[in-house]
Amino acid sequence: MRGAARPTTGEASDLLPPEVLERLGSLDLVAKTIVRGFISGAHRSPYLGSGEDFSRHRAYQQGDDVRRLDWRLFARTDRLYVRLFQEDSNLQGFFVIDASESMGFVGDGAVSKLRYSQFVAAALAHVMLRAGDAPGLASFGAGTAFHLPPRNRPGHLHDLLVGLERIEARGAGAPSQALDEVGDALRRRGRVVLISDCLFADDGEEFLAAVARLRARGDEVIVIRVASRLELGEVEGHAARYFDPEVPDRVVDAVPGKDPGFRGRVAEYYDRLQRGLEEQGAEYLPLTTDMPLVTALGGWLMARARREARAS
């Protein structure tokens, strides 16, 4: 995702809701449709390094590789400059998809949280591969499953999308173990993109600890939270006997629409989680299943690109 991602403005694709994407069928087409919405022009890494394409000169600083000195320019100007090249982006990353039972929840949206997560992962994988990064795919639900190692070669996107399609919501796995295993699988510093509803049994304590371990390794961690507005309490639920799909034995006789504190309690949980992630230096992106993906991801990617440009 080191690409210069910019959302197009005013295009019809910006408004594509998830239910329309669902009708498109294959994830490949979905990913292209989304990415077409927010990618325009050349997609190039903003990082300068040891690639093939010359970018610009910079005054030599102590510690610079002497092999990058431009001797011709030194002969003409009698000053030392190093040549900077567009870095060949080959960042390794993992998409970690939450495939627990609760991700199969549809709620008020048109698609389930898992399906929405698949859209997100497909679109971001597309972007990463275009940026020269190497995304892999893992999931956790009934257990941790490694579907694809991080690669960047022709055909990898197809494999990744096929892997995404095969993920089904089952079980109630813990993310910490999956994150630890993913961290071990990354040979060098990389990026871990967790797409989950972030509803963890221990209120996310182990999860935050696992994120902390990844961050300690120097990995970049992005947590994309996917939820429906119904479970956030933003849409009034009716009277029923409710149960958590991952804990079906525990039933709560309740009327969400008549429980004014419900929305606040859910929001408080996610706020606490967000604060914990930000303290770890992880990035947190909350999404709901009714949000058009182009708008949601495009805006986020553009803001992220601006941040990185400023940092560099």
Binding site: S102, F105, G107, D197, L199, L230, E231, L232, G233, G237, H238, A239, A240, R241, Y242, F243, D244, P245, E246, V247, R250, V251, V252, D253, A254, V255, P256, K258, D259, G261, F262, R265, V266, Y269
Partner: peptide, 24 residues
């Protein structure tokens, strides 16, 4: 009988059987 429905955030709901019965 009251319908049984899945809600991943059910743990944040407050038990309110009386209202449920009344509204049912």
């Amino acid at each position: 009988p009251p319908a049984r429905e899945a809600l991943p955030t059910a743990r944040f709901l407050k038990e309110d059987a009386r209202t449920l019965l009344r509204l049912q």
